[in-house]
Simulated scan of single mutants.
Amino acid sequence: MTPPPTTSSLTAATTPRRPWIALILLGVPVLLALLGPPVAGDDAPRHDALPSQPPGAGHLLGTDVLGRDVLALVLRGGASVVGSSLAALAVGAALGIPLGLLAAGPRRQLDETVMRTMDLLLAFPGLLVLMTLAATGHRDWFWLVTVAGVLQVPAVARLVRGAALAPGSRSVVEALRMQGHGWAYIHLRHLARELAAPLATDAGGRFSLVLYLLASANFLGLGLPASSPDWAVLIERNSDALFTQPAAVLVPAGLLTALCVGGNLLVDHALARQRRRP
């Protein structure tokens, strides 16, 4: 009889053995976001360029519905995608980490107040909030990133609270408190080191969620203006010309997919390596 697989063999079997695939999928759109704008050139419509032209001489990826060069737009559009997602993650962490630490403190009433407020915030669908803001005229980059970041606060705060309330963390915190150490020393020096790993792992997966929310908002016209080279905006603007000029839709869609899938694969690989550690 064949012996049942051990935990180590199961982990090895499910571990991504080729992290370079994730690095390539994630690295290509990130490099385009970083290096693309300086080399993109002018993306303004040319007088001799027809709209929705297929790839050809002078336009390697063709033109969009406004007659702009798709390659230049793709090179410029990654900066807003990556920058907006990272900025929203930063907003969520800047608000969620302190709230989670406050909830994990010794005051039970404060814990209840913070957590019930987070529960209330969780009840609001992200796209519905963005639609409401767009209807009131708040549809620029600042509001888009701020709202997307605030919507991540409950999950970040719950993660921080749970890690800070873990038995191992609580025993050390109580010992440090009995030794006379203050709140800043305990939370900013000790707990910060304990929370670094789970927060980094969560940020990798949460990046895809934020990217999906922002891309959906831009695709629905709730965020950036229609003239923006953002990849999601390009997909929405050129969706009617999918069959006549597919490159204007498939290239930015492929880059968004690669960014999301590459980030998820890299997080899975990091988690698998962490599970293998003794």
Rank of each mutant, 00 (worst) to 15 (best):
A88W: 00
V39T: 09
W20D: 07
G92Q: 06
L31S: 15
A94H: 02
I24M: 12
L99R: 01
G83A: 03
A44P: 10
P19L: 04
V81A: 15
P19H: 11
G36D: 11
G96S: 11
L61E: 00
L99Y: 05
V39W: 13
A44C: 07
A90L: 15
A49V: 05
L31T: 15
D69N: 01
P55E: 03
P106G: 09
P54S: 06
G36M: 13
D64M: 00
A33V: 09
L75I: 10
L75S: 00
A22N: 01
L89E: 01
L23A: 15
L99P: 00
L66G: 04
A94L: 07
D43Y: 13
A93I: 09
R108Y: 11
G96D: 06
L71G: 04
V70G: 02
Q53R: 12
P106R: 14
V28M: 13
G36W: 06
V65L: 05
L60P: 06
G83T: 00
I21G: 11
P37L: 14
P19W: 06
P54W: 11
L32T: 12
L89P: 05
P29W: 04
L86W: 08
D48F: 10
Q53C: 08
R46H: 13
A40K: 03
S84K: 03
R17P: 12
I24C: 13
V39L: 15
L73P: 00
L99H: 02
G92S: 09
P45Q: 14
A93C: 10
L32Q: 14
H59W: 14
G36R: 15
A104F: 01
S52K: 07
V81Y: 07
P38G: 14
G83D: 08
P29H: 04
L95S: 08
H47F: 15
P19C: 00
I21L: 14
P45V: 14
V91S: 08
V30P: 04
